[in-house]
């Protein structure tokens, strides 16, 4: 009986100031001991804009993955997809907080109440034209094959960036990248295993996987051209030039698709990313309406 009471009575300590359960007790703070001052010679506005780009990619992809919750093909996939979503959400929160600290809150701060943390002001109170994510992560995920092809592409690209970003002169970006590398390694591995199974599974799964590849491939055009912000930050050792990871990403994707008996489409011609400039597809509006609706309905509330 003692055991029973102990478990239930823990509730009495619920309001004892441990407000951080989302991170679990005993989890390491990835920024513990990290100097969060902006390094000398680094432009704060650029650092903030760059953090937003990487943060928005993670937040928006998390939202798309989470759409599968309670609808996944197997319980094991419920757990795995939620895991990827949680990792990306964690990365997004750190990156949006970094962007906020660098002072790029923009219009969001005019509508969000003061007590709302920077990460939420940025996630919930920006309009689509202020989001900086690539189209790759915002478009509808399609079926499970297309979802996993997109996850493969997005995680292969992000992993290649994060491996290099660990050397960033900004200690915060460096720490976020160091935390993200093992997470993204898992995401890429999970997606690659499924692309193999689906590509080399049944006639139907092969057809769906190929259709997924064909739908996702044109979006690769946006990933390799540095924005002006990135170019300036590459010069100061803060950012990674996305052009530098292009060949590695292409090699990884080609290897997986060939082993999956899928046809590798022509790599599309590079173009500046419209998403990085705040231009989004028609699918971004509904995505944000769902994400932000409740928070905006109660702008003075704290949750």
């Amino acid at each position: 009986m003692a055991h029973e009471e102990t478990v239930y009575d823990a509730l009495d300590h619920a309001h004892g100031g441990e407000g951080q359960w989302a991170f679990g007790t005993g989890f390491d703070d990835p920024l513990a001991g990290v100097d969060t001052t902006i390094p000398e010679g680094v432009d704060a506005a650029d650092l903030g804009a760059y953090s937003l780009m990487l943060g928005d990619d993670a937040l928006v992809l998390c939202q798309r993955l989470t759409e599968w919750t309670t609808r996944a093909p197997e319980l094991e996939e419920e757990v795995a997809i939620a895991n990827c979503g949680l990792d990306l959400l964690g990365q997004a929160r750190l990156l949006l907080a970094r962007a906020g600290a660098a002072g790029v809150l923009g219009r969001s701060r005019q509508t969000a109440t003061d007590s709302i943390p920077d990460e939420d002001a940025l996630a919930y109170f920006r309009d689509a034209d202020e989001f900086r994510n690539h189209h790759l992560v915002e478009v509808d995920g399609g079926d499970y094959a297309q979802t996993l092809v997109r996850l493969l592409v997005a995680s292969a690209h992000r992993l290649a960036l994060f491996v290099r970003l660990r050397e960033s002169r900004d200690p915060v970006l460096s720490a976020i990248a160091a935390k993200g590398v093992p997470e993204l390694t898992y995401h890429r591995d999970h997606a690659a295993r499924w692309v193999l199974r689906l590509g080399d599974g049944t006639e139907q799964s092969h057809r769906r996987a190929q259709a997924g590849v064909d739908a996702v491939w044109p979006l690769l055009a946006d990933l390799s051209t540095a924005t002006d912000v990135e170019t300036r930050l590459v010069a100061t050792g803060v950012a990674v030039d996305p052009a530098d990871v292009r060949e590695e990403v292409r090699d990884v994707l080609t290897m997986v698709l060939e082993r999956a008996t899928l046809t590798v489409p022509e790599w599309p011609a590079d173009r500046p990313s419209p998403g990085r400039a705040g231009e989004h597809t028609d699918e971004m509006g509904p995505l944000l309406a769902t994400l932000q609706g409740l928070a905006r309905e109660h702008p003075a509330a704290t949750w």
């Binding site: 359960w21 989302a22 991170f23 937040l59 939202q63 989470t66 759409e67 919750t69 309670t70 319980l75 094991e76 419920e78 757990v79 939620a82 895991n83 979503g85 949680l86 959400l89 964690g90 997004a92 929160r93 949006l96 709302i116 943390p117 990460e119 939420d120 996630a123 919930y124 769902t290 994400l291 609706g293 409740l294 928070a295 109660h298 509330a301 949750w303």
Partner: peptide
Amino acid sequence: WLLAAPSLRRKAVLLAKVQDEAGHGM
């Protein structure tokens, strides 16, 4: 409510919880 959770911390809490339930089922 996962897609509409009103803060990123609440979204993380809820996603972790729903994931735990899938684990319990397993």
